[in-house]
Computed example of a mutant assay.
Amino acid sequence: MRYAQSVADLVGNTPLVRLNRVTDGIAATVLAKIEYFNPGGSAKDRIAANIIDAAERDGSLRPGGTIVEPTSGNTGVGLALVAQQRGYRCVFVVPDKVAEDKRAVLRAYGAEVVVTPTNVEPDDPNSYYSVSDRLVRDIPGAFKPNQYANPNGPRSHYETTGPEIWRDTEGALTHFVTGVGTGGTISGTGRYLREVAGSSVRIVGVDPVGSIYSGDDIHGYDVEGVGEDFWPPAFDPTVVDAYERVSDAESFAMTRRLAREEGLLVGGSSGMAVVGALRVARDLPADAVVVVLLPDHGRGYLSKIFDDQWMTARGYDVEPVASVLPAHSTQEHSA
């Protein structure tokens, strides 16, 4: 019989899918690595087991303990999947810009969720960093994985994401493009690709307008799970060759296009990454191979990016879709 011992064993080996319609006019091959095929729906599933294994080995996390982490949602789901199997409780601290859909997903996996204000400095006592630190002090047996500084995050991508991309492109990869959040994905994947391919692969980080990585004008932005207002210790900037800076409007418009034109229901950071990848690919020759990592599923954004009223209320354009229904058919009918 062929089966997995638990759902946590299904992490990794996500597929590459060619983008066809949004790449119109581009000669290069642009492949999307679809991370929502991980059981928890995102690339963050990859880091959870390594982080928890290391904490168990060094005694930071003991039987019956509680995992407390600041997260935009995806890391929380990955940690919750592993925690379920090992008998740990989870408390996740999220900024209030995180959609209620994503908070509901965390609760569905059995976690408790604490919501904090988004637009405060990292060292503000009400920031999700500070609140998580306080909860670790107040909850007996609590452990904070601290994905922003934990080396097991980048190591997970070095051991899995990078090798998968190199294997599946059969060494033909020329460009790797991904959003930068905690920095773990680009640092670990980029380091692996550097080791196997040297300078023949270009590593490009995609960053929201307002983030510290690609500009000096640091301010809030709506896209979730990417960008930062400080330099995380887990991030290795030396692996990055270039950055593409993308606005929220561009990110969200592409996110909606990916659903309607490519059949990929993904989050806003995926749309952002694709905008960056298409800029990179625009002038490349036909033998170039660009892989762009799409970090998560769109299920956590249905009430935001995929909701026309939310989009227009925030000042974002919504492309009208003509109905094929006769006018009388759009009226509600009672049984």
Results as ranks from 00 to 15, higher is better:
Leu258Trp: 06
Gly41Val: 03
Glu244Tyr: 10
Ala55Pro: 10
Leu79Tyr: 10
Met254Ile: 06
Pro39Leu: 04
Thr169Lys: 11
Asp217Asn: 05
Gly59Pro: 01
Asp216Ala: 14
Gly210Cys: 01
Gly198Ser: 04
Val324Asp: 15
Asp101Ala: 13
Gly40Tyr: 13
Thr116Val: 09
Tyr213Thr: 01
Ser247Phe: 13
Glu100Trp: 14
Thr29Pro: 04
Pro237Cys: 07
Thr116Pro: 03
Met272Asn: 06
Ala54Ile: 01
Gly65Ala: 00
Arg62Asp: 02
Asp207Phe: 12
Lys33Trp: 06
Thr238Glu: 14
Arg256Pro: 13
Gly271Asn: 04
Val22Arg: 01
Pro233Trp: 12
Val177Trp: 06
Arg202Met: 05
His175Tyr: 06
Arg257Lys: 15
Ile139Thr: 03
Gly41Ile: 05
Leu193Trp: 15
Trp166Gly: 01
His333Cys: 05
Ala43Gly: 00
Val131Lys: 12
Lys33Ala: 02
Phe176Ser: 00
Gly179Lys: 02
Ser6His: 10
Leu265Ile: 14
Gly40Leu: 14
Arg155Glu: 10
Phe92Val: 04
Ile212Val: 08
Thr23Gly: 00
Lys144Ser: 14
Val292Arg: 05
Val30Arg: 01
Arg167Trp: 13
Val11Asn: 14
Pro295Lys: 08
Ala28Thr: 04
Leu278Tyr: 06
Pro163Ile: 10
Asn20Tyr: 12
Thr29Leu: 11
Gly162Gln: 11
Glu100Gln: 15
Ala253Val: 11
Val120Thr: 12
Leu19Gln: 12
Val17Glu: 07
Tyr3Thr: 07
Asp207Thr: 05
Asp207Tyr: 06
Pro151Gln: 03
Gly267Ile: 12
Gly40Lys: 09
Arg256Leu: 14
Tyr192Met: 03
Thr66Asn: 06
Ile47Asp: 01
Arg89Pro: 05
Leu173Ala: 09
Ala55Lys: 08
Gln309His: 13
Val180Ala: 06
Val209Ile: 08
Val180Pro: 08
Phe143Cys: 00
Tyr213Arg: 07
Gly87Arg: 06
Glu69Cys: 08
Val196Glu: 01
Ala43Tyr: 00
Gly110Ala: 07
Val98Asn: 03
Tyr148Asn: 00
Gly198Cys: 05
Pro15Ala: 06
Gly162Ile: 10
Asn152His: 13
Asn74Leu: 06
Ala322Ser: 14
Val266Gly: 07
Gly78Met: 08
Ser323Glu: 07
Phe252Met: 02
Arg86His: 14
Asn20Phe: 07
Phe230Met: 04
Ser42Tyr: 08
Gly181His: 12
Leu19Glu: 11
Glu261Asp: 14
Gly179Thr: 05
His219Ser: 07
His328Arg: 10
Trp166Ala: 15
Asp229Thr: 08
Pro232Ile: 00
Gln84Asp: 10
Val246Ile: 15
Gly76Thr: 09
Glu195Arg: 07
Leu302Tyr: 15
Arg46Thr: 07
Gly215Cys: 00
Gly190Cys: 12
Gly267Pro: 13
Pro151Glu: 03
Ser269Arg: 06
